[in-house]
């Protein structure tokens, strides 16, 4: 394991590279998924199609996608645009379902009351549906975050520096410490992102704080909504 001790600066550098690639992807996946999820949820016909499509999209093996994308986009294989778009597509595939589910979890009685109180469609969405869907969105975002951080190791084969380089190099040189460093730092980043997302969620949705334990529990999530 002396490899780790001798290469701490390198580990730090690759960790920062990894964060620089994944953080924007997680944010983009979230921002793009909200409108898609809204459409999926708004129209019954589109729901099944959008959700099935996003589920199957996630089954696309990642390496071919990263190689095929530049052909479609006209970017270089190593271009940050290629990698960001590829990872974001997977993020969206995961997040759309959560968004649609979150919006669907809002009690129709609540939305009807909001309408009755004179909310316009858009203000009802921003001030009632979106906040109430928040806990489910948050849970979805956590999954997107973890999966993006893990998936970003794959782009190392394209020559984009991420923690994945420790796997390729570690396997070639038969240095187990290097492989472990890659695995452990990937998990550490995922955990740190998770903590940040959960804290942000508490900040933005103070009403869930008392029952935050229930946030990720499907069976009780609906009850988080009810008392509001």
């Amino acid at each position: 394991m002396n490899w780790i001790g001798n290469n701490l600066p390198l580990i730090g550098e690759r960790t920062l590279d990894h964060i620089a690639i994944t953080a924007p992807v997680i944010l983009l996946s979230f921002l793009i998924s909200v409108p898609i999820g809204w459409v999926a949820n708004r129209f019954t016909a589109s729901r099944g199609i959008v959700l099935s499509a996003s589920g199957v999209f996630y089954a696309i093996p990642s390496l071919p996608l990263f190689v095929a994308l530049p052909v479609i986009l006209g970017t270089g294989l190593r271009s940050p645009v290629n990698v960001t778009i590829g990872l974001t597509l997977y993020g969206i595939a995961l997040m759309v379902r959560s968004t649609a589910d979150g919006l669907a979890s809002v009690d129709p009685d609540v939305t009807q009351s909001a309408t009755a109180m004179g909310f316009s469609d858009s203000s009802r969405f921003w001030r009632v549906e979106l906040p109430l869907a928040g806990p489910v969105l948050l849970a979805g975002l956590r999954v997107v975050s973890v999966s993006t951080v893990s998936l970003a190791t794959v782009v190392a084969v394209l020559g984009v520096p991420t923690l994945g380089l420790f796997f390729t190099d570690g396997v070639e040189r038969n240095i187990l410490g290097e492989i472990w460093a890659g695995i452990v730092m990937t998990i550490v980043i995922a955990l740190v992102f998770d903590v940040i997302i959960v804290q942000l969620g508490r900040l933005l949705m103070p009403w869930t704080r008392s029952s935050s334990a229930a946030v990720s529990r499907p069976g009780r999530r609906t009850r988080v909504v009810a008392p509001v």
């Binding site: 530049p70 052909v71 006209g74 970017t75 270089g76 294989l77 271009s79 940050p80 645009v81």
Partner: peptide, 16 residues
């Protein structure tokens, strides 16, 4: 093949 693709993309590939 890849070379051709990249050549086609030309300057679009804003290289860092």
């Amino acid at each position: 093949v890849v070379g051709a693709v990249i050549a086609l993309s030309g300057c679009a590939s804003g290289d860092p």
